[in-house]
């Protein structure tokens, strides 16, 4: 859907619906991998792994909500001589309302409620 994922970078995770991984209460993922390792040594293996794993996601893998956090609350704000004078706060409200509505709308369980 989005326009330009072809920027030549390599991505090592297959696309899935939510970049959010399922909840993992004990993410000591290397735990089983080092039977005799000293506690101190165990840290070397995962070092940087998390960053590498999460890095290099193609643009469409980024969760929209994370993106909007940044695009609507960050970045250089310019005003004055613009074509547009959309107040900052308006933009946030409008977009989030659109988001929330879209999240709610397709939920059939909501519509089937007797109340």
């Amino acid at each position: 859907m989005t326009t330009d994922p072809e920027d030549g970078r390599t991505f090592h995770r297959p696309p899935d619906l939510f970049p959010d991984r399922p909840s993992d209460p004990f993410p000591g993922r290397m735990a089983g991998a080092m039977p005799g390792a000293t506690p101190g040594g165990s840290r070397d293996a995962p070092r940087g792994a998390a960053l590498a794993e999460a890095g290099l996601l193609p643009p469409e893998r980024v969760a929209l909500v994370d993106l909007l956090d940044r695009l609507l609350a960050g970045g250089v704000v310019l005003s004055g001589d613009l074509v547009l004078s959309i107040a900052d706060i308006d933009l946030v409200r409008i977009s989030l309302r659109a988001l929330i509505m879209s999240v709610r709308e397709p939920d059939p369980t909501e519509r089937g409620r007797p109340d």
Partner: peptide
């Protein structure tokens, strides 16, 4: 690079 906020349009 300094990203600019979404939907900033000059004439």
């Amino acid at each position: 690079a300094a990203p600019v906020r979404l939907a900033t349009v000059y004439s």
